[in-house]
Computed example of a mutant assay.
Amino acid sequence: MRPALFLFALLMPLLLLAGCRQQGEWYIFEGVALGSGYHITLNGDLGPGESALVEAAIQGELASLDNDIQLLQHLLATGWPIVLGPPGAQVPDDLLQLYRARAVDHLARVLGEFGVEHALVELGGVQRTLGRAGRHPWRVRLPRTGLASAPDAALRLEGAALVTRSAARPADADGQEWERILAVSAVAQSAEAADHLARELLASPLETAMEQPARVVVLTPRGITLHIGAGLEPLLER
């Protein structure tokens, strides 16, 4: 056997084993922020004591955003500015959801500063993935729809975010329901971009969502129907 082929034959088992290995150790960070729980799973090679630094950076970033919400709540409680609502009003859910999307993107940036390339960040239903979960994309579950005939669905995401927005319930007109969008789950590269897309599709005709990476839940006179946009089809777990 020629020397080059002999050396290749010796190295091949090692190369195969290296390809099967995970990127590093698994780490999990959990807690509460912005009125909801957060869960971060990452896979990487953190040096001695670096795990504690990552956790401290995560908590510091979330504390800063929590302070923003508390300041806004204080302004609402004092009735200033009036355009935000009457004295004692709560922070609107729509704004809180936007802050959660922003927080998830901030956390993804923090992890990147520590060299983390593979992670799943979830806060209040907002989810964003970095890299892969081992040799496969991250498995992210879509929110349940309440339809008994519709099985739970999941997406395979790599470097993308999933955000779900629900429409405000309008007042019934003479007790009659009409066809309308109930919720939109949208995918984009960042959580804020996915949140923006979901809000946009909530106010758009259903046909607009059919070309997007989104799932739309629609209420019709015959019941609830699900619609999958063309951009979401390739991401669905089979």
Results as ranks from 00 to 15, higher is better:
residue 203 A to Y: 06
residue 114 F to W: 14
residue 34 L to S: 05
residue 56 A to Q: 13
residue 233 E to S: 14
residue 177 E to R: 14
residue 166 S to Y: 12
residue 24 G to C: 11
residue 190 S to E: 14
residue 129 T to Y: 15
residue 163 V to I: 08
residue 43 N to K: 05
residue 116 V to Q: 00
residue 68 D to I: 04
residue 110 V to Q: 13
residue 39 H to D: 05
residue 20 C to N: 11
residue 30 E to I: 03
residue 183 A to S: 15
residue 193 A to T: 07
residue 121 V to P: 00
residue 118 H to L: 07
residue 114 F to K: 13
residue 186 A to T: 08
residue 133 A to R: 14
residue 92 P to A: 02
residue 196 H to I: 03
residue 66 D to E: 15
residue 56 A to C: 00
residue 166 S to D: 07
residue 54 V to H: 03
residue 19 G to A: 13
residue 201 L to S: 09
residue 42 L to N: 01
residue 13 P to R: 09
residue 38 Y to M: 02
residue 50 E to W: 03
residue 105 D to P: 05
residue 163 V to Q: 06
residue 106 H to L: 08
residue 163 V to H: 10
residue 109 R to L: 15
residue 196 H to V: 04
residue 19 G to M: 13
residue 72 L to K: 07
residue 81 P to F: 08
residue 64 S to L: 10
residue 179 E to R: 11
residue 226 L to A: 11
residue 118 H to M: 06
residue 13 P to A: 02
residue 216 V to R: 11
residue 150 A to K: 12
residue 64 S to R: 15
residue 165 R to L: 06
residue 120 L to K: 12
residue 63 A to V: 00
residue 9 A to S: 04
residue 214 A to V: 11
residue 168 A to Q: 13
residue 219 L to D: 09
residue 223 G to T: 09
residue 126 V to D: 09
residue 85 G to Y: 10
residue 32 V to L: 00
residue 209 A to T: 05
residue 236 L to I: 15
residue 1 M to A: 07
residue 92 P to R: 10
residue 24 G to P: 04
residue 75 L to N: 12
residue 206 L to S: 07
residue 98 L to V: 03
residue 39 H to Q: 06
residue 81 P to I: 05
residue 49 G to N: 01
residue 157 L to I: 04
residue 155 L to M: 06
residue 47 G to I: 02
residue 92 P to I: 01
residue 116 V to P: 01
residue 38 Y to Q: 03
residue 48 P to I: 01
residue 120 L to I: 14
residue 87 P to I: 09
residue 36 S to M: 08
residue 205 P to T: 06
residue 119 A to V: 09
residue 89 A to N: 06
residue 191 A to W: 11
residue 120 L to R: 15
residue 194 A to H: 11
residue 113 E to P: 04
residue 165 R to P: 03
residue 221 P to D: 12
residue 190 S to M: 12
residue 72 L to V: 04
residue 14 L to P: 00
residue 212 Q to A: 08
residue 50 E to H: 02
residue 164 T to W: 01
residue 182 L to H: 02
residue 203 A to W: 04
residue 129 T to P: 08
residue 80 W to A: 05
residue 162 L to F: 11
residue 179 E to C: 01
residue 219 L to N: 10
residue 32 V to P: 00
residue 54 V to R: 02
residue 120 L to Q: 15
residue 176 Q to S: 07
residue 126 V to H: 13
residue 152 D to N: 04
residue 151 P to K: 06
residue 117 E to A: 13
residue 185 S to R: 10
